Amino acid sequence: MKKLILTAAAAALMAGAAHAERYVMITHTQGTDPFWPVVEKGGRDAAEAVGATLEYNFDVSGDMAAMAQLIEAAAATQPDGIIVSLPDADALGPAIRSAVADGIPVITMNSGLEASAELGALMHVGQPERLAGQKAGERAAAEGVTNGLCLNQEAFNTALVDRCTGYFEGVGGDLNMIDVSNDPAQIETRTAAALQADPSIDGVLAVGPHVCEAANRAIKEVGADVHLACFDLSPGVMDMIQAGDAAFTIDQQQRLQGYMPVIVLHLYNTGAGLLPGANIPSGPGFVDASNAASVSALAGIDR
Rank of each mutant, 00 (worst) to 15 (best):
289 A>R: 14
219 I>V: 13
164 C>Q: 13
68 A>L: 11
187 I>P: 01
211 V>G: 01
52 A>E: 01
289 A>E: 15
244 G>W: 12
32 T>N: 06
23 Y>V: 10
40 E>F: 02
16 G>M: 15
183 D>P: 09
277 G>E: 06
237 V>E: 01
150 C>H: 00
109 M>I: 09
105 P>Q: 04
68 A>V: 02
88 D>H: 08
256 L>M: 04
59 D>M: 04
219 I>N: 00
252 Q>G: 03
116 S>I: 12
188 E>S: 13
136 A>V: 12
14 M>I: 15
269 N>F: 07
249 T>S: 00
113 L>C: 03
110 N>S: 13
24 V>C: 05
53 T>H: 12
199 P>C: 02
44 R>T: 14
160 L>Q: 11
266 H>K: 07
17 A>C: 12
226 V>S: 00
37 P>T: 07
166 G>W: 09
200 S>I: 11
87 P>Y: 02
85 S>M: 09
205 L>C: 02
159 A>W: 08
107 I>W: 07
90 D>H: 10
63 D>K: 01
72 E>V: 11
240 M>N: 14
116 S>K: 10
99 A>R: 08
240 M>G: 07
214 A>W: 01
252 Q>C: 01
156 F>I: 12
53 T>M: 06
61 S>W: 05
34 P>N: 01
224 A>G: 04
20 A>D: 14
